[in-house]
Design a binder for these strands. Structure first.
Lengths: 202, 202
DNA sequence: CAGCATCCGCTTTGATACTG
DNA sequence: CAGTATCAAAGCGGATGCTG
């Protein structure tokens, strides 16, 4: 952990979380919860195995994660990095407009952005679930009581399913493309999507 | 600019701002406004001159700064990084408790943290100014109309002046040490400090 | 097999010297 | 003042090997 040697809150913060890959490891733990080494590695395509081991050691030494028989867990202090990740994600989101065909993609990476983009626009209706099929694993959007919650995996009984390549699905969920015009697959109750993102119908 | 190659808002953001020194350059521009090369360099003790030149080129290429006859200015997109810097600063602030005698310090680095720590607890009274003398340059805290604004430099006519080493002054302004117990110098109207930080008297 | 450690070539960073 | 040039050191990425 190379330090900037500055008595400044931002520099001190970056001393701890500013190294390459460190914040992306935090991202994985925030989005997927406690994880084993191999699961982290799968969520971080491109990381060198020794780097992941190094970073986990540093994060542990800095009180950001703990490890118990191979399971890495964020500490309270680690969870406090969520606002940082949200701020970076919000700032970085416009960069997703840029097309790069060879970029890796995993659906759970959408969890934070989707939480910003979607809302419960019919909070009095009973809770519903939308299954999002993009990338390798499905993602579930739970909506109800005025809140939106996003989880990895498939819901027990989805009210609707939206599927297709990210670059088509994301604009629909962001409300920049209407569902009717997007070449994405949709099955089930359209009201779920309208509830989450009215602009998808406009 | 080495990229993570991930279609993820956070990774894309970090592709642009995640390199070493990049965010600290942004910090300088946020805190000090448009600056020339030499001024940036002074605010970034430890940076290598070629690195600063490299980073400024990248930041310009990414639309985060512009340059006109040697003056570097944040673009609108660059200013949008302020929430990111605030989040990192808020997270990093507790790390300032750790003592490192050889760390560099410049008073303007306190501007963002102080804005979080201080408030206008007497918004109906006329505006006042507190001069903070710590580090090499003085810092002015303007308070009035329910708001706190912090600027580099000395006010025309300060209502009060607080001075001393950062590690003594900061706890007072943070409300963790009472003024009477802190070995800091204080001249002028104590009401200004009470207005900004009531806990300094408790 | 999961969880690393080691080795190696390449890239980035840091320190210093120098220039229009 | 605002950089460029040079070079050593550190960090990173990829492959491979080891150990419970």
């Amino acid at each position: 952990m190379r330090t900037y040697g500055q008595y400044c809150a931002m520099a001190r913060g970056l001393d701890v979380i500013g190294d390459r890959w460190t914040l992306l490891i935090i991202r994985e733990l925030l989005l997927r919860g406690p994880s084993r080494y191999a699961k982290l590695q799968r969520g971080l395509p491109g990381i060198a195995t020794n780097l992941l081991a190094d970073r986990l050691r540093e994060l542990e030494a800095n009180g950001i994660v703990t490890r118990n028989d191979g399971v890495v867990t964020l500490t309270a202090r680690g969870h406090e990095l969520e606002p940082v990740m949200r701020a970076i994600g919000r700032w970085g989101a416009p960069l997703l407009a840029q097309v790069t065909p060879d970029a890796a993609f995993q659906s759970h990476w959408l969890a934070l952005p989707l939480q910003e983009l979607l809302g419960d626009h019919a909070p009095t209706r009973p809770p519903q679930a939308l299954e999002v099929r993009t990338g390798e694993e499905p993602l579930t959007v739970h909506v109800g009581h005025g809140k939106v919650r996003i989880n990895p995996g498939r819901p027990d009984r989805p009210d609707a399913i939206i599927g297709g390549p990210v670059r088509l699905v994301l604009p629909v969920l962001a409300g920049r493309t209407r569902l009717a015009r997007a070449r994405v697959s949709f099955e089930g109750d359209r009201a779920v999507l309208r509830r989450l993102q009215p602009k998808a119908f406009a």
